[in-house]
Amino acid sequence: GKELVLALYDYQEKSPREVTMKKGDILTLLNSTNKDWWKVEVKATANDKTYERQGFVPAAYVKKL
C-alpha cells in the first residue's frame, strides 16, 4: 500500500517545488531516497473542491507512520 507520513511541524513552502503542511497533517509519501527532502502528496480543499499537490518537504519535519 501507500506509505504515509505525519507532519511534526508546520512548514511553509519557500519555492514552487515545495508544499505547505500543518502539524498533524497526514501525507502520502512518494519518494524518500533523498535524506533531506522527501516528496509527498498533499490533499487540500479549496472552494469545496479537493485537489492534490505533489512537492517536497524537509525530511526532519515528518515521520513515517
Rank of each mutant, 00 (worst) to 15 (best):
P16S: 12
K14L: 09
Q54V: 13
K23F: 04
L27K: 00
R17D: 12
T20W: 05
Y61P: 02
K64C: 08
E18I: 03
L4P: 04
L29K: 00
Y11D: 00
T50V: 13
A59S: 12
Q54W: 08
V5G: 10
Y9I: 08
M21C: 08
K14R: 13
E3C: 15
R17A: 11
G55Y: 04
A46R: 13
V57Y: 00
K64S: 08
K49Q: 12
E41L: 14
L30I: 14
N31Q: 09
L29N: 01
E41F: 06
S15K: 07
K14T: 12
P58E: 03
L4M: 11
T50D: 11
E3L: 10
T50Q: 13
K22H: 08
W38R: 00
D25R: 01
D10W: 03
P58V: 02
V19D: 01
S32G: 10
E52L: 15
T45K: 11
E41P: 01
K22Q: 10
L6R: 09
N31Y: 06
Y11W: 10
W37K: 02
V42G: 09
N34V: 04
W38E: 00
P58H: 02
K23V: 07
Q54Y: 06
L29G: 00
A46N: 13
A44R: 12
K22L: 07
R53N: 05
T33S: 14
P58W: 04
T45F: 14
V40H: 02
Y51G: 12
L29I: 04
S15M: 07
I26L: 08
V19L: 11
G1A: 12
T28Q: 09
G55C: 05
N47V: 08
K23P: 02
V57E: 01
D36R: 13
A44S: 12
V40F: 02
F56C: 10
L65E: 04
Y11I: 00
K64H: 08
A46K: 14
V19K: 01
W37E: 03
G24C: 10
L65S: 04
A44V: 15
Y61K: 07
L30C: 06
G1Q: 13
Y61T: 06
K22W: 09
T20G: 07
L8Q: 04
V62D: 02
S32N: 11
